[in-house]
Amino acid sequence: MSAVFEVSHLSKAFGGLKVNSDISLAMNEGERLALIGPNGAGKTTFVNLVTGRIPPSAGSVHLAGEDITSLGAVKRVRRGLVRTFQVTRLFPDMTPEEHVVMTILQRLGRATRILARFHGDSAATDEAAEILATLGLTEVARRKVATIAYGQQRLLEIAISLAQRPKVLLLDEPAAGVPSSDTPRIEEALARLPASLAVLMIEHDMDLVFRFAKRVVVLAAGEVIFQGLPAEVAKDPKVREAYLGSYAHAGG
């Protein structure tokens, strides 16, 4: 079976500074992969390269067999490569329902219609209600996003990405900033992501990574230093050095 998502030899240098060098990884349908690494390892650059916000210096990105390296950010989304944001990016004056309806309308090619009522599209509204219900957001569906809890905003980010029906989902620290009392709800939502969806999670929180991912990639100083099972990560000498070394450095 060929990979649904494949990054080969991806590199990015700013001037002489190599921020990502020769990163390769592949994901199959339904795979749960986590990308971890200490601060400054190049995770944010990697996300920007993959989503098409900055062009790579070298290497390629393939989605479902198609080379998308030269495509812009919007086109990649339309091909099915969807991301969530590390810090939620939502419209404070709109309701969760409106966010999800807009997303569904876009998927159906109806998002920029002028001769239609936004709130009059019953197919989109019904689907939005369903998605919001699976994430437990029904109660707040019609409240302004600015007035709902941060954990709920995080769930809404996931709801939006689900409504996009992606082939590959990039979760950029999906639990960042959420009080620990709310993390179980996020984890629950992550556990219920469609089984066929390939999910790449970029995360700091090791507990979350170990419970979610079946495979882990470790990035340090812009390079992949480990790929394998979660259970083996902690034993790997290179990983230990990258983390402990960096902590020692930060501490000093």
Partner: peptide
């Protein structure tokens, strides 16, 4: 109030989203 109008409102608040 059309889908188009809502997208415009969205663009005003956060073009990246």
């Amino acid at each position: 109030r059309s889908p188009f109008g809502m997208v415009c409102r969205g663009l005003k608040e956060d073009p990246l989203r």
